[in-house]
Amino acid sequence: MLDELELLKKDWQKKEEHLPKLSYDQIYKMIWKKSSSIVKWIFYISIIEFILPHLLYLVPSMRNNLDIYSNLGLTNVFLVISILQYVVIFYFIYQFYKRYQEISVLDSAKQLTSNILRTRKTVKHYVIFSLSMVLLTFLMLIIGIYFSDNVLETLGLAGKMDSVPIEKAKFIIMASFAIFGVLFTLALGGIYFLLYGLLTRKLRRNFRELQKLEV
């Protein structure tokens, strides 16, 4: 086998004359083209992931939810949680930016792959955090409904569920919020992790390969 590889090496070095040859102008044009590297992709997708949950608040029905909070007596709780949430989000964005800056094509293959995966991991933790917040929001709504005396009015259902006893109506509403909350979170999580998996499959495979022998 060794001899065969040596044979290949000799042939390989002769191959040079068959290689394509680009002119000065062709190369000059290339340096102004836009990169389509995996880092670019991860950067843009991450930005979308940071912004997307906040766009939800612009949806009218989401704003109505804010009214529901005040009617359910959750205004202060909501305010505190919002402040905490933004502190955490800014921490994540800072981390993401710092790690993104560390990515350098001049590192070794292993270091480079590891840095990209670390950057990606920051976003992954952010997404897990966001999903937990979504679940928490639903949980708060459910608790609010439980302690509220005028649920039907608040949710605009007055007159529509009159035939049902109030306790049962409350239970039905709470259960639907719970089911919807879980399904919503699962759907968002599913889409995200699918995207994440596809994007970093090659990176993770190569990184495992580079790590395999390290003790």
Binding site: I38, V105, A109, L112, T113, I116, L203, N206
Partner: peptide
Amino acid sequence: YRVALNTAITLYR
């Protein structure tokens, strides 16, 4: 060598 291989192995999709 380093930049070219890094691009082929890691960055290129």
